[in-house]
């Protein structure tokens, strides 16, 4: 049944499932009771669980598919100038990798929204995007996104379903306050920097010192990831982006430019940001006020300091 699919639209199995779910009128969801109640309270109802998946093959080989290239010309050619940060956002070789990963994520998201439209939904809440290496072949990556499709009460329909990482409660609170989620976004950047002479000297220093080159590396990579995320948010528009999580991974690789002497190394940094763009609309009637309450149940005593909110590093 699934042998003759060309990659356009939904895979036949998924199309059959959504058609069956739509005709039967029974919905499935991964929402908790509280989330379900919150959704219904703001006039949305679940229509079913939706999923999108895409397996991509990253063509090149080697560690990190050989995309790390520090673009450092060597100390003598550059007259001792500090090594540059080769950023994916500035067209370094790693930009091809960022591009293919971006395309894969968007394919998975598009398939999920196609399922959502097929079920008659207006958007997807609690969407989770995961990337995992395909079991038997490590240079194939599976991009999967899964969430619950919801439908708005009333006759007005959006041209394209919205997607968001927020759970049912977060979604309900946003809508009550006059904000509607637009699109799940994923910003990413890869930076490579050669450990030049100055960096080595700072690393081996006897006194306290900042390792300037590496500070530049992580700063540039994070800024680039933010710029990438913002560039994506411009595609559909909106008023703001609420971030869900961010991560920074740092590791080192032998430099592929100066292979002759083995002690030459590059440091790589990869920053990712996940978030949802939101748009503001005017709420009719008075906006609800927040009520200060003091919980008196013994188990309600929670950590009062620090922010348990997001995991952003």
């Amino acid at each position: 049944m699934s042998g003759d699919w060309t990659g356009a639209g939904l895979p036949p199995v998924a199309a059959a499932r959504t058609a069956e779910a739509r005709s039967s009128g029974t919905w499935t969801s991964a929402l908790s009771t509280g989330e379900f109640a919150a959704l219904r309270a703001v006039g949305f109802e679940p229509v079913g669980q939706v999923m999108g998946s895409a397996v991509y093959h990253v063509g090149r080989r080697g560690r990190y598919w050989g995309y790390h290239d520090c673009q450092f010309m060597g100390r003598w050619l550059t007259a001792g100038a500090p090594a540059p940060v080769a950023l994916s956002g500035r067209g370094a070789p790693s930009s091809a990798l960022v591009e293919v990963l971006d395309k894969a994520r968007r394919t998975a998201l598009a398939r999920m929204t196609a399922e959502c439209s097929a079920l008659g939904g207006d958007g997807v809440v609690a969407a989770r995007l995961t990337v995992a290496p395909f079991v038997a072949q490590s240079n194939c990556l599976e991009f999967q996104v899964i969430g619950t499709a919801v439908r708005a009460a009333g006759p007005v329909r959006a041209p394209r379903p919205f997607t968001c990482h927020l759970d049912g409660r977060g979604f309900a609170k946003l809508v009550t306050a006059g904000w509607v989620p637009v699109e799940l976004l994923y910003g990413m950047s890869v930076g490579v920097r050669h450990d030049d002479y100055r960096t080595q000297a700072q690393r081996m220093s006897w006194s306290n010192t900042e390792v300037g080159g590496w500070s530049d590396l992580v700063h540039d990579v994070r800024s680039d990831a933010r710029a990438h995320l913002l560039a994506q948010s411009g595609r559909r528009g909106g008023d703001g982006v609420i971030l869900a999580a961010g991560d920074l991974r740092v590791w080192r690789e032998p430099c592929i430019r100066r292979n002759s002497s083995n002690d030459q190394e590059d440091h790589l940094a990869e920053a990712t940001l996940v978030g949802t763009s939101v748009a503001c609309f005017t709420v009719r009637g008075a906006p609800p006020r927040t009520l200060t309450v003091m919980p008196v149940g013994p188990e309600r005593r929670r950590r009062t300091t620090g922010r348990p909110g997001n995991e952003m590093r």
Binding site: G154, V156, V175, R284
Partner: peptide, 11 residues
């Protein structure tokens, strides 16, 4: 009212 307004904004 609220979901309709939200959908209108998306549109």
């Amino acid at each position: 009212g609220v979901p309709a307004d939200a959908m209108r904004r998306l549109a």
